[in-house]
């Protein structure tokens, strides 16, 4: 464990800083924005699509089963991303409409 931390010190720093950053960014959010924020953050969690793309690119394209599993992974993650951002945008547009009144 200690060895792992020493070998990957920069990575550990990145992890810890990002956690702190995530906490700081969200902790002052007004309640009205909780739902859009949850939905927006949810869209970002589809970032696993990058991994799915790497998976398909590194796999032997002759191995149809793995290619199909990888494709399914991309489809699912993309639904999460595209749908998540779109629905968040729809919600927030209702608030923006208010601002102009």
């Amino acid at each position: 464990m200690i060895e792992f931390i020493q070998e990957n010190l920069i990575m550990v720093y990145l992890l810890v800083f990002t956690v702190v950053l995530g906490f700081e960014l969200i902790s002052k959010v007004p309640t009205v924005l909780h739902t859009p924020l949850m939905s927006g953050a949810n869209a970002i969690s589809g970032i696993v699509v990058i991994g799915a793309i790497f998976l398909l690119r590194t796999n032997d394209s002759g191995d149809t089963v793995k290619m199909l599993i990888g494709s399914a992974a991309i489809i699912l993650a993309t639904i999460n991303i595209a749908g998540g951002f779109a629905v968040t945008n729809r919600m927030l547009s209702m608030f923006n409409k208010k601002k102009k009144d």
């Binding site: 990002t18 906490f23 953050a41 949810n42 969690s45």
Partner: peptide, 18 residues
């Protein structure tokens, strides 16, 4: 991939605090 790492941790942290 650091982009995935950072995005994922951001969501993990913000989801937890939320």
């Amino acid at each position: 991939n650091q982009f995935m790492l950072l995005g994922g941790i951001l969501v993990g942290a913000s989801g937890t605090i939320l």
